[in-house]
């Protein structure tokens, strides 16, 4: 009996030794460990807290200790007009991305193919404003466009005409968003276009492709990785924009981020603010995944 017990103990020890000698994680997983820990702490933990808060009792701090659908029910209540804020945020972001595509493409093209040694200076001109706080730049635009401001004053001086009233309107919010997010579309596009092999374009031209065909069938598909990154980056940033609506737009429209801010401040309803944040994250994430799925990134990146 005793020897049997010893045998079992021996085999357990040898098993443990065998186990300890085998790798616990693959080398790849071990290398990825710091990043995984960082993501868990910096990304997953706050997101979990926000999701948990969205299911807490309204107007409470009972996170993890209460569970309620009341916040979501409040948002989907037919009398609640918060859908208007969702609509404004998503529409403004969509139009911003669309306009930026049209504006940034020729600039990026110029920087890669046309401006030559001047493209460094052009890059600096687009990067430089990023060193100044967004709010300061937007207040600068207010001083430019405001009545009796720089624009109005200059026009008066030159011809006596008054400048059109552009501040405090949805149009100026859009202008502010395009201005703010232009570099985030431009530089991925520049990257995309610079990866384009010149030989392919030359070959297409030699084979008789028109300028439009070269653009449609060669340049655009090959620049698509940069274009996609620019589209997604600017869309996600633009959905979360708030300063443009506040500073330039005089809150002529209420964007969703404003509703979230009010929930966390004046309303002191963190659970409702969290539910709004979760919903907009789901919408943005869903749209992004849908786009990636539809556009088949692997094909775009030329891996298939």
């Amino acid at each position: 009996m005793e020897s049997h017990a010893l045998q079992i103990q021996d085999s357990a020890i040898s098993g443990a030794v065998k186990k300890s000698r085998g790798p616990l994680l693959t080398p790849g997983a071990r290398c990825a460990l710091p990043v995984i820990v960082l993501l868990l702490l910096g990304f997953a933990a706050p997101l979990t807290a926000v999701i948990a808060y969205s299911f807490a009792e309204p107007h409470s701090f009972n996170v993890f200790s209460s569970f309620s659908f009341a916040n979501y029910a409040e948002i989907f209540n037919t009398e609640n007009t918060v859908w208007m804020s969702f609509l404004w945020s998503l529409s403004l972001a969509a139009v911003t991305v669309l306009m930026l595509s049209v504006i940034a493409y020729p600039i990026a093209y110029g920087m890669v193919y046309v401006f030559g040694r001047w493209s460094g200076l052009v890059s600096t001109l687009f990067v430089f404003p990023l060193f100044i706080s967004e709010n300061v730049r937007l207040y600068g635009w207010v001083l430019f466009f405001i009545k009796n401001g720089v624009f109005d004053g200059t026009l008066n001086l030159l011809g006596g005409a008054d400048a059109p009233e552009v501040l405090y309107s949805p149009g100026i919010i859009l202008f502010g968003m395009i201005y703010t997010y232009l570099p985030y579309m431009l530089f991925p596009l520049v990257l995309g276009l610079s990866l384009l092999p010149r030989d392919v374009v030359d070959a297409a031209k030699d084979l008789g492709a028109s300028r439009y065909q070269v653009w449609r069938e060669i340049e655009l598909p090959l620049a698509m990785p940069g274009f996609m990154i620019g589209l997604l980056l600017t869309f996600v940033l633009a959905v979360g924009a708030i300063a443009e609506s506040k500073v330039l737009g005089g809150q002529s429209v209420i964007v969703l981020t404003h509703d979230i801010e009010v929930s966390f401040t004046y309303a002191q309803n963190w659970p409702l603010g969290s539910a709004l944040a979760v919903l907009i994250t789901l919408i943005t994430g869903g749209l992004t995944l849908f786009m990636l799925f539809k556009l088949d990134l692997d094909r775009v990146l030329g891996r298939k």
């Binding site: 207010v142 001083l143 405001i146 009545k147 401001g149 501040l167 405090y168 005089g250 809150q251 002529s252």
Partner: peptide
């Protein structure tokens, strides 16, 4: 009917400029 909703600096600026 409000021309703008803003912080007090923006509102003072709008008063001074005549907005």
């Amino acid at each position: 009917g409000a021309k703008l909703i803003g912080d007090m600096a923006s509102l003072n600026q709008a008063l001074i400029s005549g907005e």
